[in-house]
C-alpha cells in the first residue's frame, strides 16, 4: 500500500516537474507576460486612484485597502486562470490525444489537477517581479504571517473547488468545437466574477450575492478578503467548511459529468 502510494506520488511528481520546463522553454513568452501584466498593474493603479480622488472611503473600503486589493488580485490571478479546462479538452479531442490520456495508468483528473497545480506554482513564482512592481504602485500588503497562512489555505481550497467546476465547464468542449471562443468567454466572465477587477464588496449587494455563490470568487476574492482586511480572520473556519462541503459535492459530480461527456467520443469514435 505504502509502496503503491509512493509509486503514484512519483508518477504524478514526474508530471508536475514537467510544467516549469515546459514554461521556461519559451522565455520570450515570460517577458511578454511580465510586460502585459505590468501594463495592467499601471492602468489599475491609476484607475483606482482616480476613483478615490473625491472620496476617502467607498463602501467601507479605504483607498489604500482597495488599491492593495486590486493589485494583489492581479498578482494572484493564476489562482483563477490556471483551472480553465475548455481549451485543454478541446485540444486533446482535436488531436485525438484524449484516448491516450485515458489509457495512462493514472487517474486522468488527478493527473490534470497535479499538472494544473504545478502550473499554478510556476505561475506564482513568475509573479514575484510583478509583486515588486506593485509595491512601487502603492500596494501595501500585510506583514502578519497568520493572514498569509489563512490566505494560502483558503486560496488553495478555492482553487480545488474552481478546478472541479471548470472540469465540468470544460466538458462543453465535447459538444462544441469553437473552443477558442468558449475559453475567451470563460476568461472574460472569470475576470469579473472572481473579483479580479473589482472587489465584490464594492458591487451592489444582489450582484455580490450571486457571485459569492459561484466558485470563481472562492479562488480569489474570498482568500484576498482575508489578506486585505475585508473579512475578519475569525471567519476562516466557516469559509473552509463551506469550501470543503462544496468540494464534497463538486468532485463526484465533475467526475460523473466527464464520464457522460467522454461517452460521446467513445460512441461516435471521436
Amino acid at each position: 500500500m505504502a509502496l503503491a502510494l509512493g509509486r503514484t506520488v512519483r508518477r504524478y511528481g514526474g508530471m508536475a516537474s514537467m510544467a516549469p520546463k515546459f514554461f521556461l522553454a519559451y522565455s520570450i513568452w515570460v517577458w511578454m507576460e511580465w510586460a502585459v501584466q505590468t501594463i495592467a498593474l499601471i492602468i489599475t493603479s491609476f484607475f483606482w486612484r482616480a476613483v478615490y480622488t473625491d472620496q476617502t472611503v467607498i463602501a467601507g473600503l479605504a483607498q489604500s485597502q482597495t488599491l492593495t486589493y486590486v493589485l494583489l488580485a492581479l498578482i494572484f490571478a493564476p489562482f483563477v486562470h490556471s483551472t480553465g479546462m475548455i481549451y485543454n479538452f478541446g485540444y486533446l479531442l482535436k488531436e485525438g490525444q484524449i484516448a491516450v490520456e485515458l489509457l495512462r495508468p493514472l487517474d486522468f483528473q488527478a493527473g490534470q489537477y497535479v499538472w494544473r497545480t504545478a502550473e499554478l506554482w510556476v505561475g506564482l513564482i513568475l509573479q514575484v517581479p510583478l509583486f515588486i512592481v506593485a509595491l512601487f504602485l502603492g500596494m501595501q500588503p500585510p506583514l502578519d504571517p497568520r493572514l498569509w497562512a489563512v490566505f494560502l489555505v483558503t486560496a488553495f481550497l478555492g482553487h480545488a473547488v474552481l478546478f472541479c467546476f471548470d472540469w465540468m465547464l470544460g466538458c462543453l468542449a465535447f459538444y462544441v468545437t469553437e473552443i477558442w471562443g468558449l475559453s475567451v468567454a470563460r476568461y472574460g466572465f472569470t475576470l469579473f466574477a472572481s473579483g479580479l477587477l473589482v472587489p465584490l464588496a464594492l458591487m451592489p449587494d444582489w450582484l455580490a450575492g450571486i457571485l459569492n455563490v459561484l466558485p470563481f470568487a472562492q479562488a480569489l476574492y474570498v482568500p484576498l478578503s482575508f489578506l486585505t482586511g475585508i473579512a475578519p480572520l475569525s471567519d476562516a473556519p466557516r469559509v473552509w467548511l463551506a469550501q470543503l462541503a462544496a468540494l464534497a459535492v463538486l468532485l463526484p459530480l465533475s467526475r460523473w459529468v466527464f464520464r457522460v461527456a467522454v461517452r460521446k467520443v467513445t460512441v461516435q469514435g471521436g
Partner: peptide, 29 residues
C-alpha cells in the same frame, strides 16, 4: 454557425467584464 455565434459573443462577454467594472464604480461615485 454555432461557432460563428460563440466566437462573436465570446468577445462581447470579455468586453463586458471591463464595462461592469466601470459600471460598479460609477454606482458609487
Amino acid at each position: 454557425r454555432v461557432n460563428f455565434f460563440i466566437g462573436a459573443v465570446s468577445t462581447l462577454i470579455e468586453q463586458t467584464a471591463g464595462l461592469l467594472t466601470v459600471w460598479v464604480v460609477m454606482q458609487r461615485i
